[in-house]
């Protein structure tokens, strides 16, 4: 994930160079998209969670409502000869409960909706097993009056090169699925090494005591490239971003979004006490 690192540096440079800049709200009269497109957000995991695929549609950019769900689709995932049917449990949410993925297996997604057919494929990589997690005080660039902590991860990285990981965290049992809170790791520079306290997610908490958990999701490189493009698209860095373009994932048939198979490793809960990190 060198390009994400480069983007972070550029964002830092922009912050310094924009000392004289100012921003103000404006009203725009944007054109409306002529055709809405199907959007897929699907995960196949190797744990016991209910496997979920969400289907929505694109909406006008200046809309103030969530993107509309896509109902009535036929959704299946195939692994070898095994076909798993996903049932619509809520509008736009398609789930399969008695099924879990296996590393090394390629999963094929098939969606039929209103005479259109969409497909995608993803191979599940090997997990990064988390041995343990520690927390340390983090104050750089953050408001001084709100305590921030950084999680440090310990674990053995797989000796096979070309592994990519996402790290998500939970605070008091509540997992944060928002992309902006994730951390990323490529084994490019640390292939096969034992990680001794590699800095990962940053957590804000004013509580005297709280619990945190960290989980790693091993993903294909293509998914991290997709995430990288999403960051460019979501928050361009003003100077260095390429010309804006719609981010396309791995779904064929003109749909947006991504279908990813991932193996997951979750740490034990860690209790963090403010007094251990901040003098009163």
């Amino acid at each position: 994930m060198k390009s994400i690192a480069i983007r972070k540096l550029l964002a830092a440079m922009c912050a310094v160079l924009l000392l004289t800049a100012c921003e103000e709200k404006i009203d725009l009269n944007l054109d409306q998209e002529q055709f809405s497109r199907l959007v897929v957000e699907g995960w196949i995991k190797d744990n016991t969670e209910t496997q979920t695929i969400r289907l929505t549609r694109t909406a006008p950019y200046d809309s103030n409502a969530p993107c509309p769900p896509v109902t009535g689709a036929n959704v299946t995932v195939t692994a070898g000869e095994k076909v798993v049917v996903f049932y619509e449990t809520r509008p736009g949410v398609y789930q399969a409960s008695d099924f879990r993925g296996e590393p090394g297996t390629t999963y094929h997604l098939s969606i039929h909706h209103q005479n259109n057919h969409y497909t995608a494929a993803s191979t599940m990589p090997v997990a990064f097993p988390i041995d343990s997690v520690k927390a340390t005080r983090f104050h750089f660039g953050m408001p001084a009056d709100i305590p921030h902590y950084q999680l440090l991860v310990y674990g053995q990285e797989d000796p096979a090169p070309g592994q990519f990981y996402i790290f998500q965290h939970a605070k008091n049992g509540q997992w944060n699925d928002t992309m902006t809170s994730w951390s990323f790791l490529s084994d490019f520079a640390i292939n096969g090494q034992y990680l001794k306290g590699a800095p990962m997610n940053i957590i804000e908490s004013e509580s005297e005591e709280f619990t945190v958990q960290l989980r790693s999701l091993a993903v294909e490189q293509e998914y991290l490239m997709f995430i990288d493009q999403c960051f460019y698209s979501y928050m361009p860095d003003m100077f260095f971003s390429p010309p804006p373009a719609t981010v396309t994932g791995n779904i064929s048939g003109g749909a947006l979004g991504y279908f990813a198979a991932t193996s997951v490793s979750t740490s034990q809960p860690l209790v963090v006490r403010k007094r251990d990190h901040f003098t009163q």
Partner: peptide, 21 residues
């Protein structure tokens, strides 16, 4: 280039574009 449509992924609102510049 400004967006005409929107979609969501991992809790973020992503833009979609129609015409360059």
């Amino acid at each position: 280039t400004l967006p005409t449509g929107r979609w969501e992924h991992a809790g973020m609102i992503m833009p979609s574009y129609s015409e360059r510049n």
